[in-house]
Amino acid sequence: MCGMKFKFVLQLTLVYIFSLLPERANACAVCFTATEETLEAFYATTIILTLLPLVMVSSIVYWLYRKHRKIG
């Protein structure tokens, strides 16, 4: 029981020590600027990369469906 308490305190201490070193915990590797244009670019590319596979796959499936209907 005492050993578990010691581990818990040790973990908390380590987390506290790391929180004092913020440069070691650089969360975002691509946030090198904080301009409005960069933010807009992030939004635009997120939308592109999210929607593009959905649009492509659904287009192919619809095309195959049309072909199948045409033959059938």
């Binding site: 600027t33 301009t35 670019a41 635009a44 592109i48 593009l52 492509m56």
Partner: peptide, 27 residues
């Protein structure tokens, strides 16, 4: 069918490059 599946992955590859360009260019 095989080529279309391959081209979907290729399109995503180019989309990643385009995204990188847009983000770096904006900064």
């Amino acid at each position: 069918i095989g080529m279309l599946i391959f081209l979907v992955t290729e399109a995503m590859f180019f989309a990643a490059l385009i995204s990188a360009h847009m983000v770096i260019r904006a900064g």
